Structure formats: C-alpha cells, structure tokens
Simulated assay, not measured.
Amino acid sequence: MNTADLHMLTGAYVLHALSPEEHGEFERHLRACPSCAQEVRELAATAGKLAAAVETTAPDGLKPRVMARIATERQEPPVVARQARRVNRLGRRAVPRLVLAACVAAAAAFGGIALWQHQQAEDARAQAQRAEQRADELTAVLAAPDAVVSGGELADGARATVVVSRSRNQAVFAASGMPEPPAGSVYQLWYDDEGAMRPAGLMDPSQTAQVLLMDGPLDGATGMGVTVEPAGGSPQPTSAPVALMSFPA
C-alpha cells in the first residue's frame, strides 16, 4: 500500500473498519504523519460526540403505575333507596360537603402524581446534563493536542482503541465487535497502576460497539485492562482479563 492510499484511511481507522494488516500499517504511518494524526483526532472527536448522545424517554411502566394509583382511590358506592332516605334526612347541606371531600381527595391524588412526574422529569434532566458533560469531556480528550492513540485486536475478533491525554489526566476507551458477556455479567474497565488494578467504569452489556470516557483520573497508570465481572462491577478483578493494553508513552 502506497502513502497516498494510507492518507485515505483516517475515517476507516476511527471507525475500526480496517483489517488487522491495514490497521498495523496505518498506525505506523500515523506516527510519522502529523496531518493524518490531526485528522484522526478530529474524526474521533466527532464520532465520540455522536456515540455519547443520550435520548431521554418516559420511564417504563409509567402508565401501569398511574392506572394502579387511580384504582386505589375510593369511589362513592351507588345510592340505594335506604341511602337516599338517609341523604334526605341529612338535608341538602350534606351534599356540598360530600362533593368538597371528593374534590379534596381527587386533588390530593392527582397532586401526588404530578409531584412524582415532576421528580421524574428532574431526574431525567439531571441525567441528560451529566451525559452531556461526559460527552464534552470525552471530546476534549480526543481533541487534546497531546492525545496519543493505541489499538489492538481482542478475543473473538473484537477491536479496541485507547486514547490518552496526559495534560487532561484522562483516557477514552473505544471497542467494536465485543461479544455479549454471560447473563448477569458486565465488562469492567480497569486502570493498571503498575500491576495494581483500579476500577475505571463499566461497559453496556447490550452494546457491541462503544466509546467511553474512563472513570477517574489517569494519574500514573501505565495501561488498562478489561474483565468480565458480576452486574454492577467489582472493587477488584475477579476473572482473568479479556484484554490488557499498555498506554502509549
């Protein structure tokens, strides 16, 4: 492959669409070509922004919960002849009181539902703000002037790339073709502090391709690892790593 062809592979490289041979040849070219390195950072920043986009939807089961709440509100029984005579004995002034009580009960019930819905909306808004902040941080790492890229092939044909920015003290991990972990398990990322593993975030087990801002500061980490852990993650690795990658110097 000549140099002109290599200049055309920046997009495919960012999207992990190169063969292992092309990937290795392009990475060697990347170390000697500042213009391609800059284009890769810009394309990776755009891909990261798109991958981190979050759409907030109504919570699952909202309608059944609201309908169940309505079903628990007490209804007035039908008026039979004996009850009708009792109402007549109470006089007309009792009827407005019954109507008022029903209105108060309805207001309380729907007021509680409205408050719950408001809290749900606030939670969703806060979640979206956190996701947007992480997307901005991810993009900043990918676009950092000192960002360096390293990649490799994992088991089962999956590919992984890590981008490290020492100036921002952060790292970004991207993977494609990840097989689904066993039921009840999740892929967990780790910083490798010269052999001591430090938690760095969880991958979404339902996604085969992801771009993640690794949790926590880079600090003195010399590499990273990926293990399969119980859902929710572990404080320390409990399985052999499915991937170990050294951070570029």
Results as ranks from 00 to 15, higher is better:
1 M>S: 15
7 H>T: 12
9 L>W: 05
9 L>T: 04
10 T>G: 02
10 T>K: 05
11 G>M: 11
13 Y>H: 15
14 V>E: 09
15 L>H: 15
19 S>T: 15
21 E>C: 01
25 E>Y: 01
26 F>P: 06
27 E>I: 05
28 R>L: 14
30 L>H: 07
38 Q>L: 14
42 E>Y: 02
48 G>Q: 05
56 T>W: 01
60 D>E: 14
61 G>Q: 04
61 G>R: 06
62 L>W: 08
64 P>W: 10
65 R>N: 01
66 V>D: 02
69 R>V: 02
76 E>S: 11
76 E>K: 07
76 E>L: 12
78 P>W: 04
80 V>D: 13
82 R>S: 12
83 Q>P: 00
83 Q>N: 01
86 R>H: 04
86 R>A: 14
87 V>R: 09
88 N>F: 09
91 G>N: 08
92 R>N: 08
92 R>P: 01
93 R>E: 13
96 P>C: 00
100 L>G: 00
101 A>V: 00
103 C>D: 03
106 A>R: 09
106 A>P: 00
107 A>I: 01
110 F>A: 04
112 G>F: 00
114 A>G: 14
114 A>W: 03
115 L>N: 04
116 W>S: 04
123 D>H: 11
130 R>K: 12
130 R>W: 03
133 Q>W: 07
145 P>V: 12
146 D>Y: 07
149 V>I: 12
150 S>N: 06
155 A>V: 13
155 A>W: 07
159 R>H: 07
160 A>F: 02
162 V>M: 09
162 V>P: 05
162 V>Y: 05
163 V>I: 14
164 V>G: 02
164 V>I: 11
183 A>S: 10
185 S>I: 01
187 Y>A: 06
191 Y>Q: 04
193 D>E: 13
195 G>P: 06
196 A>W: 04
201 G>M: 09
208 T>S: 15
211 V>L: 14
212 L>M: 10
214 M>R: 05
214 M>K: 06
216 G>W: 08
220 G>T: 12
222 T>F: 05
223 G>L: 09
228 V>M: 07
231 A>C: 03
233 G>P: 02
236 Q>S: 13
237 P>W: 03
240 A>R: 13
242 V>N: 02
